[in-house]
Amino acid sequence: MRTYNIHEAKTHLSRLIEQALKGEGFLIAKAGKPLVKVTALGKPEASSTRRLGFMAGRMRVPDDFNRIGADEVRKLFEDDA
């Protein structure tokens, strides 16, 4: 595992993070003494990443959904009160 001093790590942080994501962790040191180990986190669990379609098949949208309340909305815009 390679060691970088703080200044070098700040200068090349984006590149170092990309390397860590590929599995090449690194250490950040101050005055030659390692302080921090940087490694990629594991991938999130599949159940926590899926959001779109999570209610698929559990509810039904009425056919007139886009027209519900249309008369009331129209009155709000057409009234000259």
Rank of each mutant, 00 (worst) to 15 (best):
K10S: 08
Y4C: 00
R15Q: 14
G42L: 00
E18A: 12
E72K: 12
G57V: 06
D79R: 14
K43E: 09
L76F: 10
N5P: 11
N5E: 15
G42I: 00
R15I: 00
G69T: 01
N66R: 09
Q19S: 10
F54D: 09
D71A: 07
I68T: 04
K30H: 10
Y4L: 09
T49V: 09
Y4P: 07
F65G: 03
R58V: 08
L27H: 13
I28D: 07
F54M: 15
T11E: 15
L16W: 00
A70F: 10
Q19L: 10
R74S: 10
D71T: 10
L16S: 05
R58W: 00
K37L: 12
E18K: 12
A70Y: 00
L76G: 05
L27A: 10
G25M: 02
E18F: 01
A9E: 01
P62H: 02
E8V: 06
F54S: 04
R58D: 09
R67T: 08
G69W: 06
D80L: 14
A29D: 06
R2K: 15
G32Y: 08
L27F: 15
V61P: 00
G69I: 05
L16C: 07
H7D: 15
V38I: 07
I68E: 11
Q19M: 04
R51Q: 12
P34Q: 06
E72Y: 13
H7K: 15
M1G: 11
R51A: 06
E24P: 00
D80S: 14
T11V: 14
A9L: 07
A46I: 01
H12P: 08
A56K: 11
M1E: 10
R67C: 01
R67K: 08
D80Y: 14
I6L: 14
Y4A: 01
A81D: 13
G57D: 06
K22H: 00
I68C: 00
L27Y: 09
V73T: 12
T49Y: 02
R60Q: 07
A56H: 08
P44D: 04
G53W: 05
A9S: 10
V73Q: 07
R15C: 04
M55T: 15
F65P: 03
I17D: 03
M1Y: 11
I68H: 05
A56D: 15
M55S: 13
A40F: 10
R74M: 11
V38D: 00
P62L: 02
E72V: 15
A9P: 06
S48V: 10
A29P: 06
M55I: 12
G23N: 08
A20Q: 02
M55E: 14
F77M: 05
V61H: 05
F77P: 00
S14K: 02
S48Q: 12
F26M: 02
F65V: 02
T49H: 05
T11K: 14
V73G: 03
K75H: 09
H12D: 14
R58C: 01
